[in-house]
């Protein structure tokens, strides 16, 4: 048979194979959360105050430093952990001492947790302590009406008054 007569068959085989590949490019569908479920995400990045305040450097300390690195004050970089608690309808679902980030432990503490909840109304309470003591110095509470596939976010802005419910 002439080579040209084989062309439709060759094209058909390739097109069929490609059609199979193309079908798998968006099928079968994937469900990332169960049906009738929404998600609440607690996510913020916040650094506690540094462990110690700046203090004047002593003469000995300055002498040990190279001339270009001599500063009148020594400021410890390290930050303490923050403590976070998150309750949904009075039940504690998250509780952690979150360490600071960074090699020198001088970065902010980071929290990023998601909670899948069936659609419904929930009382959300979140607390945070970022300084010594037993009391939580930051707290936020809100009743949210969560629908299926909703995504609600709890953020924190120290300069914006504390916890923000989106």
């Amino acid at each position: 048979m002439s080579d040209a007569l084989w062309m439709p068959a060759r094209f058909a085989v390739l097109a069929l194979f490609f059609a199979g590949v193309v079908s798998l490019s968006d099928w079968p569908r994937h469900r990332s959360v169960p049906e009738g479920v929404g998600v609440v995400t607690l996510s913020f990045s916040h650094g506690a105050d540094r462990r110690a305040a700046c203090r004047p450097a002593t003469e000995e300390e300055l002498a040990r430093l190279p001339p270009n690195m001599r500063r009148p004050e020594i400021c410890p970089r390290e930050r303490p952990s923050i403590t976070v608690e998150f309750e949904i309808d009075g039940k504690r679902v998250f509780e952690a001492d979150v360490p600071p980030s960074g090699i020198a432990s001088d970065g902010p503490s980071r929290v990023n947790r998601s909670f899948e909840l069936p659609a419904g109304s929930y009382e959300l309470v979140v607390r945070m302590r970022d300084r010594p003591g037993d009391d939580f110095n930051w707290q936020g509470a809100k009743t949210v009406d969560l629908r299926a596939a909703d995504h609600r976010v709890i953020d924190f802005r120290a300069d914006g008054g504390g916890f923000v419910f989106h």
């Binding site: 569908r29 994937h30 990332s32 929404g38 998600v39 299926a148 596939a149 909703d150 989106h166």
Partner: peptide
């Protein structure tokens, strides 16, 4: 504000 709950995945 929504979760992409069911998607056609490649």
């Amino acid at each position: 504000t929504k979760v992409p709950d069911e998607i056609g995945i490649d």
